[in-house]
């Protein structure tokens, strides 16, 4: 065991892990973080706190993660390469760890073009793979990226994202291997709707034995409506929504679509549980956090193990 991370302990125990996420508010409203997190508290092993997701300014993931930590829960602090250089990243990592935040996720970040400050200069001093490596060295070698020793090294359990659906597809397993080489401990995947393609990717992962080196949590998003499905298919980069998903939602009345979406999410989890190498689920219920407990329970992932 490398860290105090609850997620690491769960994964080490061999149980399927469950994480979810909380998008911080667009303003100084700590109660919003608390409300969202409280909805999740008994049903997940870690709560991702997004970092200016879709390049919209929000309460910092660091601050929101502190709020969650102070509730006695387990935040997973996301950090994007878009908004910070390596100095800012490292100081925030030390700061977060000083507050007991021991799990984080290293990401490139959506391009600023998509957000509310498209005129901003993206930093991109280092990329997500280099960030993983930096955080690993801070933990294992107790050194800063610049080489100096750290007095009080942050022991982070290191996560990253993987998108099995973006192209070129043949690179997607190789890029995972690169993240593993850089030192990643766990992976949360992009929302999975195309299960056949996810299975194909996982086969590539297990064929190379990569599942022995990293914990893969499958990304699950319940669809609220057919409109959301269409939007994600057409507008969200790197998203793979098969027509069968849209057709199935179209097949029920508007009032029934949310329930159908949840049913589909639960079915996905059931099927993905059978796939070799998957060690848990990351449930991204976008502005629909209150449904996470239901999904976790219906998918037979409740109660969460005590570690």
């Amino acid at each position: 065991m490398n860290t105090q991370s609850r997620l690491e302990k769960i994964l080490a125990s061999g149980e399927l892990a469950v994480t979810s996420e909380c998008g911080p508010p667009r303003g100084a409203r700590p109660e919003k973080v608390k409300e969202k997190s409280a909805l999740l508290k008994d049903h997940v092993d870690g709560i991702n706190v997004t970092d200016n997701q879709t390049a919209m300014v929000r309460m910092s993931s660091f601050a929101a993660a502190v709020i969650i930590k102070q509730m006695g829960l387990d935040p997973i602090m996301q950090m994007v390469a878009r908004d910070r250089n390596r100095l800012a990243m490292q100081s925030d990592i030390i700061g977060a760890y000083a507050f007991g935040i021991n799990t984080m996720l290293c990401l490139s970040g959506d391009h600023a073009k998509f957000g509310d400050h498209p005129m901003a200069k993206g930093v991109f001093d280092i990329d997500s793979v280099q960030m993983i490596n930096m955080v690993r060295r801070m933990r294992d070698d107790e050194t800063f990226q610049g080489g100096a020793k750290i007095d009080g090294a942050p022991k982070m359990f290191i996560g990253a994202a993987a998108n099995p659906f973006a192209d070129p597809f043949e690179l997607r397993v190789m890029r995972l291997a690169k993240k593993i080489k850089a030192g990643v401990d766990f992976i949360q995947t992009q929302c999975i709707f195309n299960l056949d393609k996810f299975e194909e990717w996982m086969k590539g992962v297990t064929d190379r034995g990569l599942d022995k080196k990293v914990h893969i949590l499958a990304g699950i998003t319940p669809m609220k409506s057919v409109g959301m499905a269409r939007y994600m298919k057409n507008k969200v980069p790197g998203m793979d929504i098969p027509d069968t998903v849209i057709k199935r939602l179209e097949g029920v009345s508007k009032q029934q679509q949310p329930e159908e979406g949840i049913k589909m999410a639960v079915e996905s989890i059931e099927r993905i549980k059978q796939i070799k190498g998957v060690h848990g689920f990351h449930i991204m219920a976008i502005e629909w956090e209150e449904k996470v407990p239901q999904i976790v329970e219906q998918a037979g992932l409740y109660p969460r193990p005590k570690v």
């Binding site: 390469a81 878009r82 490139s108 970040g109 959506d110 391009h111 073009k113 993206g122 991109f124 990329d127 997500s128 793979v129 280099q130 994202a161 993987a162 998108n163 973006a166 192209d167 070129p168 690179l171 890029r175 690169k178 850089a182 992009q190 980069p237 790197g238």
Partner: peptide, 13 residues
């Protein structure tokens, strides 16, 4: 667009 040295990111379509 993100000056990635270990790309591609997940946004390629």
């Amino acid at each position: 667009s993100k000056h990635l040295f270990n790309g591609p990111c997940g946004g390629t379509s």
